[in-house]
Design a protein around this nucleic acid. Structure first.
Length: 282
DNA sequence: ACAAATGTTCCTGG
DNA sequence: CCCAGGAACATTTG
């Protein structure tokens, strides 16, 4: 899926397409996506959304937030979730995609589909006053932007964790929004081996890592994310950042900095790419 | 046939 | 409490 930059791109697309529109009905083809175990629970979900106007679409980490009139709808795309919009004109020869699981029928005759090949994505309704709680409960870390991502805090947390830095960054607790692609890219930029224990990082390495995280995410956001496999934003556009990837998906190819072959290992169940020369083991 | 794929969460060990 | 590893979720692709 979408990591922070891709989710951000989806958010911007949705704001263009459905901001201000009102939900007439919701059709659910795979109840688990909305956290429902039964048709009755689906009905309850739908009933809460009927008549709600989409005031704005926001984002926190990799979570999309639909700010509705009376409540919030939180949507996580996980690996392959997508939104696809159909104007009323386009709907005349609409055929439901095989992987469409939730359909939002809007009062202007248009429709917003949630598609997800692997059905890993999730949606949840949250009361307006429980948004803070929702993210606190997930222990979601700060956004990787200078206003919220404080170096001292970051350093303090890392000093207490005796695990590979890659798995720490994937957990979303120390900082939000990084996934497998951007963690590998960030560690390359910071010249840190992914297996380095967080509590083994020097002050200067933490400094560099802190900046690398914000820089990589900022650049990827500006590029509209990366299109790996099937990713498209809600306007159907691909991202452009994949051209800037230095290690992810480049195993066997020469490092752009030193020419040494990029290696791929398994770390925390995830494919992990790095340059053995630029990111030596300590 | 098998492994791997942008993620999160839960469980079982030590 | 900390950490590692694996499984589950479900499907497609090489």
């Amino acid at each position: 899926m979408p990591e922070l930059p891709e989710v951000n791109s989806v958010m911007m697309g949705l704001n263009q397409l459905v901001k201000g529109k009102t939900i007439r009905d919701v059709l659910i083809d795979w109840p688990r996506i909305v956290g429902a175990e039964s048709p009755i629970e689906c009905e309850e979900f739908v009933a809460q959304l009927k008549g709600q106007t989409i005031l704005e679409i926001g984002r926190r980490g990799k979570y999309l937030i639909f700010y509705l009139s009376d409540l919030f709808l939180i949507s996580h795309l996980r690996m392959e979730g997508k939104y696809c919009y159909f104007s009323s004109e386009k709907l005349t020869n609409y055929t439901r995609n095989k992987h469409t699981h939730v359909r939002f029928i809007l009062t202007d005759g248009s429709q917003l589909d949630y598609e997800d090949v692997r059905k890993f994505g999730r949606m949840e309704i949250v009361a307006k006053n429980q948004l803070q709680e929702f993210f606190e409960q997930k222990q979601l870390g700060p956004e990787p932007i200078v206003e919220e991502f404080h170096l001292q805090e970051f350093a303090k947390k890392l000093s207490k964790i005796k695990r590979p830095i890659k798995t720490v960054l994937l957990e979303q607790k120390v900082v939000a929004g990084l996934g497998n692609i951007y963690v590998d890219e960030v560690l390359f930029r910071a010249r840190i081996h992914p297996s380095t224990f967080a509590n083994q990082l020097s002050e200067s390495e933490i400094n560099i890592l802190h900046l690398a995280i914000m820089k990589v995410i900022e650049e990827a956001v500006a590029a509209g994310g990366s299109s790996i496999r099937t990713y498209r934003n809600s306007l159907g556009e691909a991202g452009k950042f994949q051209q800037n990837l230095k290690v992810y998906g480049r195993a066997g190819q020469p490092c752009e900095l030193c020419g040494v072959t990029i290696k791929k290992i398994k770390l925390g169940q995830r494919g992990t790419h790095f340059c053995p020369n630029c990111q030596p083991i300590k």
